[in-house]
């Protein structure tokens, strides 16, 4: 089985260099995803490297979010959605019967397109995850986790004087960084980001990109984006999706300079969308 899939990947593209340097964190083999009758992802296989940023690009409706959400099983919340094939995180099948979804999601965090802070204080937003997982031992420890997470999300300086005011009162960019802080507070291994900057202005976007760049030291990050420049700036691996098919995946430099597939080339040069 593994020999077979390995050849399959090779026929599509050569193994990206980044995967030579970093172990794959997430591996998908022959994944199909359906919404009822609709076949949203068709026989997808990909390796996602640890401690690096991988970008999913592709025209709207091609299934980027669908695949992303299947990596932490957020698709479970959609009754009509069905996933077949293998998706493994650290070589463990995440769709296995005995897998604890709650535990998986604590390891594979997610940041959404629209900032969605809870209607609670800034502090409580960040403390939410540690509280439900019981990772903090006492108030001082919790304070520490909150501060550390906010610092990593480079939000600390802006909010340290108003930790008790509502998270919904922040600006859009700050809210998104709060959501990132909230996600890293549970110490995940993978962070999935679905168009995290699409609701933000260029300055806030630049800050988030900086943040992503820093976070990749410790985390496996997957980001969906519609901005070619963003993908080129922050990612090391780029995967191009089209109509539910993973058309091409490779080192970001290669994809943007010498794409192998005509469709990839057309897309990144803006000839179709």
């Amino acid at each position: 089985m593994s020999a077979q899939t390995a050849t399959k990947v090779e026929t599509a593209t050569a193994v990206p260099r980044i995967l030579g340097e970093r172990a794959p964190k997430v591996t998908a083999r022959n994944v199909d995803i359906y919404y009822g009758e609709k076949h949203a992802i068709k026989s997808l296989s990909v390796d996602i490297p640890d401690r690096a940023v991988s970008a999913f690009i592709g025209p709207s409706g091609c299934g980027k979010s669908t695949f992303l959400r299947s990596i932490n099983r957020m698709n479970d919340t959609i009754p009509s959605c069905r996933v077949t094939g293998d998706i493994k995180v650290d070589n463990k099948d995440i769709y296995a019967r005995d897998l604890d979804v709650v535990h998986l999601r604590a390891r594979v965090g997610m940041v959404f397109q629209k900032p969605n802070p809870f209607p609670k204080s800034i502090y409580e937003n960040v403390a939410y995850g540690p509280r439900i997982h019981g990772t903090a031992s006492g108030k001082a420890d919790m304070d520490d986790i909150v501060e550390r997470s906010l610092r990593r999300a480079s939000l600390w300086d802006e909010v340290k004087d108003r930790l008790n005011s509502p998270g919904t009162g922040l600006s859009g960019g700050q809210q998104q960084r709060l959501c990132i802080a909230r996600a890293i507070a549970v110490n995940p291994e993978v962070i999935l980001m679905d168009e995290p900057c699409s609701a933000l202005d260029p300055i806030a976007t630049a800050r988030i990109e900086e943040l992503i760049d820093e976070l990749k030291q410790n985390y496996c990050i997957v980001i969906v984006t519609h901005s070619m420049q963003q993908a080129a700036r922050v990612s090391q691996l780029t995967a191009f999706f089209h109509l539910g098919i993973l058309v091409e995946v490779g080192d970001t430099d290669d994809i943007f300079t010498k794409p192998k597939d005509k469709r990839t080339q057309d897309y990144i040069t803006g000839r179709f969308g």
Binding site: V102, G109, F112, P119, G129
Partner: peptide, 20 residues
């Protein structure tokens, strides 16, 4: 989106209902 945010942090259904 509120619920999704909570589930994505690894909260269970009843935690999500109770806390969010």
């Amino acid at each position: 989106a509120m619920r999704d945010g909570s589930y994505a942090m690894g909260a269970t259904k009843s935690e999500t209902v109770k806390k969010v």
